[in-house]
Amino acid sequence: MSQATYTTTVKSGKGSRHGVVSELSAFLAIKPGEADELRAGLERFHARVRKAPWEVIAKIGIVDMKHVIFDDGTRLCWNTAFDTDWDPYIDDAVAILGADAWTDWLQHTVGYETEDLSTGAAIKRYLQSAQCPATGFYRAIPDLTLTQVKQGQEVMTAFEEVLDTPGAAEALQNPVFKPLLDKAAG
């Protein structure tokens, strides 16, 4: 049995945080001539994330994610934000999406060798080595998690349904509903 040489325990401490959300920014060099393959791999990766059920996204805690290929196809910038801290959850993110989904595009970046880097611990170590602290990180609504945003959306939908129901105006006259009535005007 081969001896793994990676540790899952090192914390980068490089991500910035605003409210409940933390960010990860990483800069990776693209293997010469592999920008198109990387682009295709990233399209598959993003399609996979977009198609994932809400439960999967909530488990990863991913708020947003973007990849930018720049410098004439020689470098890749990856920016993403999470509901939680990035470091404790990277093993989870790799396990939930599957190491193959990550390897599909990471294999086209310099230093990533699939035979060695197919586990969460290895991917984490690799990404940490490419991670840079954000000088500034801002979110307009920093204090809500994805789950809270989703709940808020559901409450708003339910409230609209109440307002569309005959008799709603009369029912909301009860003083208990004053905060809701204040929001009911439009």
Binding site: Q3, T5, V94, A95, A99, S118, A121, A122
Partner: peptide, 9 residues
């Protein structure tokens, strides 16, 4: 382990 990895012994 559950990550598919053999953590350092």
């Amino acid at each position: 382990d559950e990550t598919g990895d053999l953590a350092p012994v």
